[in-house]
Design a protein around this nucleic acid. Structure first.
Lengths: 192, 192
DNA sequence: TCAATATGATTTCGAGTAGCAATCATGGTC
DNA sequence: GACCATGATTGCTACTCGAAATCATATTGA
């Protein structure tokens, strides 16, 4: 695969836009890694809100993430709680303060800028970027962290009518509608 | 301006793709800021290869950039030379080693992934991202760092036939063809 | 049963980076 | 020639990262 000039230009723009967001984000007292951890936690389902999952999502290490979380906890953005079933594991939750902060996420202004720049072709653009991520993931062999409902282990309406109507065949656990829309560390795409 | 769900998704993808590049880049012994400085220098014209211009391009500070450059010089990637006309100013040049490194720039793999993801709509995608950058620049009031030939001070073929056929009306200096394609710290778009 | 091992998380340590403010050097102005 | 502006660097402090060591809790298997 050889990249066109347009592709190279696009790659530079992706990098530069991301840098602008990162630099802006710093002024809020949170560093880029901290912001990304908050964003991840806001989107992850209950099986995926752990330090190890964050480390994998961020392509970082557990040690680094542990410190990031310690800092976020000290500042009042996340709560850590030992898992009731596995004493080694830690469950994370966002505080009210974190939810409020996310409403002013600098990433939202990037979204607005993209909306302005795409001029009605936002759908194509999002699809293209998504395809690029897919390619990157295939290349690196990392996890996709995609939506639960798009997973090969997802059993839609396995408990039809119940409050948690769906089911995860891998974790053998019932899933609510909102669970199914969240991203999951275990997500694997459908077989081709 | 309110951002659509597609726009939000796209913003997340931009951030995540950029993070993957940054993380991959670390393994080469250069940090993200150092990579971006090299990329900038490879594209900047002779008026723009200075510490101050890099600081502005990266939305960083001169102090930080000074250290970044010291590190790059120590590792043999850039050469610093005092400007012959202004003794305060420093001119930067990439070494052979830097040119070689840029041939293996992790950003190139992002370009390939984008090419794969865009499925033939790469032109639209690059245009959309460019529009987004324009919006971000307008919002922040930062410099555009766009191509010399797209500048309001550019005088095409002011010295027709000469080795440096074009001219910059702001700096009052002749420009070669390759100068005119490079990016410039002083670039200002045409008046509307 | 209980050692050996695997796993999740944290801590320690060292290298490096960031921003801010102070400083140095040079250039331009009145 | 005093004064201020500008480009760059440096001292300082705080913080971040990654690698490796450590701790605690499962899990496995003899």
């Amino acid at each position: 695969m050889v990249a066109s000039l347009d592709a190279l230009e696009a790659a530079r723009l992706v990098e530069r836009l991301a840098r602008l967001v990162r630099m802006r984000a710093l002024k809020g007292g949170l560093n880029p890694a901290q912001w990304e951890a908050l964003r991840y936690l806001a989107r992850a389902n209950r099986f995926s809100r752990t330090p190890a999952a964050i480390a994998e999502y961020l392509a970082s290490t557990r040690g680094t993430v542990s410190r990031t979380l310690a800092s976020l906890e000290e500042k009042g953005y996340v709560a850590r709680r030992a898992d009731s079933e596995d004493g080694r594991s830690v469950n994370l939750a966002l505080t009210r303060k974190a939810m409020d902060a996310l409403k002013r996420d600098p990433l939202l202004t990037l979204a607005e800028d993209l909306e302005a720049g795409a001029r009605g072709r936002m759908g194509d653009m999002a699809a293209g970027l998504k395809g690029a991520l897919k390619a990157a993931i295939a290349r690196n062999g990392t996890r996709a962290f995609d939506a639960c409902f798009s997973c090969r282990h997802f059993r839609k309406d396995a408990h039809a009518g119940a409050a948690m109507p769906h089911h995860c065949g891998l974790l053998d656990a019932p899933l609510s509608d909102s669970d199914s829309r969240a991203i999951c560390v275990e997500q694997e795409p459908m077989r081709a």
